[in-house]
């Protein structure tokens, strides 16, 4: 078997919110270029784990992290890691679509603008970047005449796709998604899933989901978490059909019963 390429590796990752331990000795390796889904009951630490990988957890204060997280072979808690650079490499899509309350055009350029010196982008360059980003999320045809429209006035599905699109100009390697479809209807969910499958390979996806069917449809690897511990991490189909751990079996089958 060929050596596998991992984008994210954690070693004995422990995390506390105050006195409450949210992650217990998590050791996980995320395959590059694949879609990995995180499932488990509410409060099991899926989102917490996800938020560790670009260190947005730290913003909440009162968070203690111990252990090692390697993203692209580099420990992200090293002193020389720059947060803006890390967050550029590891993009994030949130549960509710959260485009900034500015135009569609500016939303896509926002990431680039904050990472490059003032006025370093020419008009032609920015136009090209916006078109490319919107095309890769299949929004260009719908939005090419609405680039000046406030992004918050779009349909939810378009907003969520836009939130994915605005990551692309930064050329991230990993995209974290925290229940990206929970605010969308069936059609929107399908559209986002198609988009993920289309973009997988170029990007590594890590998706938290409460929807088992979605995990099964979209991901190739699946991680089951329970009360802060990582219980099982296998190929999605294997995990759903022949779970090794009884907790995984309970969770998976309860939902299917």
């Amino acid at each position: 078997m060929a050596a596998k390429n991992y984008n994210i590796e954690t070693e004995n990752l422990n995390l506390w919110y105050g006195d409450f331990q949210a992650l217990i000795d998590v050791n996980v390796k995320i395959l590059a270029g694949e879609i990995t889904s995180l499932i488990g009951p509410s409060g099991c630490g899926k989102s917490t784990l996800l938020r560790c990988f670009n260190r947005v957890n730290e913003r909440y204060g009162n968070v203690t992290t111990k252990g090692k997280i390697q993203v692209l072979g580099k420990n992200i808690y090293d002193a020389d890691v720059s947060l803006p650079e890390l967050r550029k490499t590891v993009g994030m899509v949130f549960q509710r679509p959260n485009p900034l309350p500015i135009s569609v055009y500016e939303n896509i350029l926002f990431g680039l603008r904050i990472h490059s010196p003032l006025r370093s982008l020419t008009r032609a360059e920015s136009d090209a970047i916006v078109e490319e980003a919107l095309t890769s999320v299949f929004l260009w045809d719908a939005l090419k005449d609405k680039l000046k429209v406030r992004a918050t006035s779009l349909q939810l599905e378009q907003q969520q796709k836009l939130c994915i699109a605005r990551l692309l100009p930064l050329k991230p390697q990993i995209i974290l998604m925290d229940e990206p479809c929970s605010a969308l209807d069936a059609k929107g969910t399908l559209a986002v899933e198609e988009l993920m499958s289309y973009l997988a390979g170029t990007y590594t996806f890590l998706i938290v989901t409460h929807n088992m069917a979605q995990a099964r449809r979209v991901s190739s690897e699946c991680i089951f978490m329970f009360l802060g511990e990582l219980i099982e991490h296998r190929n999605t189909q294997a995990l759903f059909e022949t779970p090794h751990n009884s907790k995984t079996a309970d969770y998976v089958q309860m939902r299917y019963a």
Binding site: R87, N98, I114, R166
Partner: peptide, 25 residues
């Protein structure tokens, strides 16, 4: 909060979040 969160997640510094998003709003 989502506005701040999304700006931070794109790698904005606190100053950028404040000056680009929070203060105008």
């Amino acid at each position: 909060t989502p506005i701040r969160e999304s700006a931070y997640a794109l790698g904005a510094s606190q100053w950028q979040v404040l000056s680009n998003q929070v203060v105008p709003l």
